[in-house]
Design a protein around this nucleic acid. Structure first.
Length: 252
DNA sequence: AAGTGGTTCAACCGCCGACAT
DNA sequence: GATGTCGGCGGTTGAACCACT
């Protein structure tokens, strides 16, 4: 009974401004797609190809807006879509590309074959934001960007390296991120929407590599990371504790 | 077992630019 | 040039799921 009411509500729901234009005399269905609808869409595109979404929606007999059809196909039904957790390689790529492109998810998705912009956006807004929240800093803050550069990327790079045979030239990862230690990243393309960060060149603090070597990064589950930035007089120090789920927590 | 709060992610929405008329 | 239509983009929502109490 509850299901019936929900379905009815979905079907009768008011559609958005643009979708209203698409709506002729029929009521447009919204909400989760059914197996039957998916089948209709897949079969139609297999025969006629994609595009012309409004016509597609009408001609295929789907009580959906063209936009809804397009979204369903692009984000879910397309055969070459890869689903599931992001690999460390993909996470590195996302972090790097977000540094370069900011929230331009479609641009980032272009560099990650088989991943949709929606998936990448969700990854960023859930996982990355969660990490920022754990560290009690803003996701766009200077501190968090430095955390990514000096902590997260090196750890992910290590995971990648550990998962590949030594000397495997096919790992496809840029050498600048395929080693432990602070990573050089180009902020100049404007990660920050706040305009606080000027283009800078990152340099490891002297003695930092020695510290990393001696500590082996992990010291009783606590990282000590130092970094220096060109133009800054003194390095800042942070204590991070790695949590079992792979996130980091800023120690008091 | 039930309630509650947090997380995830598919889907929706508003806006904008490109293009056609 | 003005207007209408469509597709794409990024932000947001909400249902389902999960963990914890």
């Amino acid at each position: 009974m509850l299901m019936d009411l929900k379905t009815l509500e979905a079907i009768n729901n008011v559609v958005s401004c643009q979708d209203k234009k698409e709506e002729t005399n029929i009521r447009v269905r919204r909400g989760a797609w059914s197996f039957e609808e998916d089948s209709i869409l897949i079969n139609y595109i297999a025969i006629h190809g994609e595009g012309q979404w409004s016509h597609l929606a009408r001609n295929a007999g789907l009580n959906r807006t063209g936009r809804s059809c397009r979204m369903r196909w692009k984000n879910y039904l397309q055969p070459n879509i890869r689903r599931g957790n992001f690999t460390p390689e993909e996470q590195v790529r996302i972090l790097e590309l977000h540094c370069h492109y900011g929230n331009r998810w479609s641009k980032i998705a272009q560099h990650l074959p088989k991943r949709t912009d929606n998936e990448i956006k969700n990854y960023w807004r859930t996982r990355v934001r969660k990490q920022a929240k754990l560290l009690k800093c803003d996701i766009n803050s200077f501190e968090f960007r430095e955390f990514i550069r000096t902590m997260w990327l090196p750890i992910l790079s290590e995971q990648i390296r550990a998962s590949k045979p030594h000397g495997d030239p096919a790992n496809g990862v840029d050498d600048t991120i395929n080693r432990p230690g602070p990573v050089n990243m180009d902020y100049s393309a404007g990660w920050c929407g706040d305009g606080l960060l000027e283009p800078v060149e990152a340099h490891p603090v002297s003695g930092m590599e020695e510290l990393s070597k001696n500590s082996g990064w992990l010291d009783d589950d606590v990282f000590r990371v130092g970094y220096g930035l060109h133009g800054f007089e003194s390095p800042e120090w942070f204590n991070y504790k790695e949590l079992s789920d792979g996130y980091f927590w800023l120690s008091p």
